[in-house]
Design a protein around this nucleic acid. Structure first.
Lengths: 204, 204
DNA sequence: GTCTATAGCCAGATAGAC
DNA sequence: GTCTATCTGGCTATAGAC
């Protein structure tokens, strides 16, 4: 069944490529290593994907769509502000726990080709969270929260959710903590991050 | 004056290498490009530095020492807790504004050789901020602040200071803001980040 | 200390058999 | 669709002249 085989091969190439690109970055990744990890040879790689760049972009795009549909959609939902912050932070951290590759993958790309990266973000449907930003402005006007620049709030939420995944190896090394303990640290942040954010929004 | 010449050449190689490594990462950087940017040829590069890896490590080590002596020392100073948080956040953000290369540089290395990276952190004298962590425990015991895991606090401070520099190209792209405006956003964080942190520490 | 020229290797990509 | 063999280019590193 050639079509079925094809699906399998193609799929295993994509998985292998994702692993290698995450570990080595674009420039450091080797087509040979991807082929090995997929259990095929280099020639077949080029049969399925024209070249390294194409293969990489395929995976980048998939990753961004995963982020968009897996988590960012929450920001446009109808929950009220505090509820949304609690739900989003906790969900985002869980999401990154089970998709750790996403962070490294995008980091690797940030310094390589920023223009292209932004283009792919747009193409994957990732955009400024209008709904959330309107909610913040409304609550500020109503006097329910401190005067807050919505963009700063979004930056803070992203910082507190994402950075611990970026800095993991360094923080582990410097604080001398083990993988298990670091994971517990992150686990606790699902509850704590939204509370910190909310306490910074409340008036004294 | 050969020794003087040598200092100049060596220095210009280091500067050129830093620029190229920051832009391209280790694997993406080309010795030819470094030579061009330094205004010399490849052979001379290998005359001064045995190989690419050596050159890279030299620059990495310099970068880490800059971070340690330029900013992290503050954490061990004698200021009281809130004063220290205000001073550190504001100084850290200023520091990154004038040393933007540092963030990309370390990011590039994070996924390449974590073990070596941590070793260099240690060798550069970067370690857990004992003094700060003790202060937090003391203030918690005295009942002046909420019960707080010192490591979470450190993670939060670093997240809020560093992440905006990492995510700059993406945030700019997604929010459609220009370089100038993004810099103003960051500028304001010098005052705001410490206040958010402190408000999360205060009891209700 | 600085250069030109080149060795030697390795990676991405393709030709062509099965 | 998958393989082996190979081309081609580019990159690190060195030899050797000045």
């Amino acid at each position: 069944m050639s079509e079925h085989e094809m699906q399998n091969t193609r799929e295993s190439i994509l998985i292998a490529a994702r692993n290698v690109f995450v570990k080595k970055g674009y420039a450091g990744a080797r087509m040979q290593e991807i082929a090995d990890e997929a259990g095929i040879n280099k020639a077949l790689l080029h049969y399925y994907f024209k070249n390294k760049e194409t293969l990489f972009e395929m995976i980048l795009f998939e990753a961004l769509k995963t982020i968009q549909s897996g988590i960012l959609v929450v920001l446009e939902s109808e929950m009220d502000l505090f509820e949304k912050i609690r739900f989003f932070c906790s969900r985002y951290i869980s999401f990154l726990q089970s998709n750790t590759y996403l962070v490294s993958f995008i980091l690797n790309e940030i310094n390589r080709d920023q223009e292209k990266l932004v283009k792919y973000f747009t193409r994957a449907g990732i955009k400024a969270p209008e709904k959330l930003m309107i909610q913040i402005e409304e609550e500020t006007l109503k006097g329910n929260i401190r005067k807050t620049d919505p963009r700063q709030l979004v930056l803070n939420i992203l910082s507190l959710c994402i950075f611990p995944f970026i800095a993991r190896p360094i923080v582990k090394g410097v604080f001398r903590i083990q993988e298990k303990e670091y994971n517990e640290l992150i686990e606790r942040r699902k509850k704590e991050v939204p509370e910190w954010i909310i306490s910074s929004l409340k008036k004294e």
